[in-house]
Design a protein around this nucleic acid. Structure first.
Lengths: 218, 218
DNA sequence: TTGGCGTGCCTAATTTAATTAGGAGTGCCT
DNA sequence: AGGCACTCCTAATTAAATTAGGCACGCCAA
């Protein structure tokens, strides 16, 4: 009701603060993309923003706090991307699984810095805070459920349990993504030595696991 | 011929130098295992050896040179382990492939520090030297050939080419290993959420790709 | 309308790590 | 005996993270 056109001083401050934080995050991600996740450097961030280094401490209590914030940003954009992938279509079973794996690779190509921060953690001394980890586990759990739902719809042959199928799927997803980022980070989904394999691995799982007469004793 | 029981002064020096280098490498690997690959720290190495930090520069021109040496040590033990795995048995086809993937995971569990240095490189500023990379490519090539030989022996259905099968195998191998190290680094091959999946994924590939009547059109 | 306080920024200092400079001791070899 | 190579040391230097302390501005309550 009491919405005036101009912001209250408090709101203006708040907004400035948020913009500043966004700018820091953007500068940080730029550096991480250009020089590697572990090369983050407060001096360089400050220089990019035209500030003195200690001023950054107004916004983040330490470099690790900045990493933690980035970790959380990453968790959220990741979860959102995967949620969107789940909603974007109503197919079930293997099509859904393929869509899901594709979305994972797509997100990782678009956010290689966050992928490395979230899923290949090698920052000396950085451990996500408990809250960040909780958020991450939440996101992973959502993904797990979506994935299990898709695989359930695919009616697996009991050569694998649902959990095993899920974990193999996850390993394939991670392997393809990590190797794509290492080999052809500039190529989009569907191209490159590893980025082109998704339809094939989906087919592989489908053929190996579809319910029908057993083909081979162990 | 002129072999006396005692070493010549030159040999003694040489031996001392090699022992020193070994000791540095051991201390470095200890630190990497305990605190992460990127946490390597010359002061701590020196302290562990009872020296002053600058003395390490007698043996390595810089921290990066030490990383590079470790990278090369890693490449060699990796190649040796894989070669041994190839020789250790004369089975061909899927058994050989399974043996191979198992050896890969085994080596990675035994040398998690080297695995991260070689295959998940995120050390700020570290790029292996050209010579080290050449050695790495050689080792990877050997592995690739061995793997292709195994897969050829398995007589694949043409749903996948040999190269595609090989790359899917590699993605699975990397994914399982990375996830095993992230989730159950202390468990041996065969145990843990991901470490136990190898027989299943070999079966999966065998069933999906074995040559016999087509089971499904695309 | 004014004094106090929070906010945002700065400069200066401290600490830790990598690296360089320069020197001393030891033993080998000519 | 002199010179040199090798190994180690102490004392800088440099870069990065962080802390201390100060200044200015604007808001807000008395």
């Amino acid at each position: 009701m009491a919405e005036s056109k101009v912001l209250s001083p408090k709101q203006r401050r708040q907004r400035n603060r948020e913009e500043m934080i966004d700018a820091i995050v953007e500068a940080a991600r730029q550096i991480m993309r250009e020089q590697g996740v572990a090369a983050l450097n407060l001096n360089e961030i400050a220089r990019a923003l035209g500030m003195q280094t200690p001023s950054l401490y107004e916004y983040f209590a330490s470099k690790m706090a900045l990493y933690d914030y980035l970790f959380r940003v990453g968790t959220r954009t990741f979860r959102d991307a995967m949620t969107r992938a789940g909603e974007g279509q109503d197919s079930a079973g293997w099509d859904q699984a393929q869509h899901y794996m594709t979305a994972y690779l797509e997100w990782s190509i678009a956010n290689p810095d966050l992928f490395k921060l979230l899923f290949e953690r090698h920052i000396p001394g950085f451990t996500p805070s408990d809250e960040s980890m909780a958020e991450m586990y939440g996101a992973l759990d959502e993904g797990r459920q979506r994935l299990e739902a898709g695989l359930s719809a695919a009616r697996l042959d009991p050569v694998v349990t649902l959990e095993q199928a899920r974990d193999i799927f996850i390993a394939l997803q991670h392997g393809i993504t990590a190797l794509h980022l290492a080999n052809n980070p500039e190529l989009p989904v569907g191209q490159g030595r590893f980025g082109s394999l998704i339809p094939l691995v989906i087919d592989m799982m489908r053929i190996a696991w579809e319910k029908q007469t057993k083909r081979r004793g162990s």
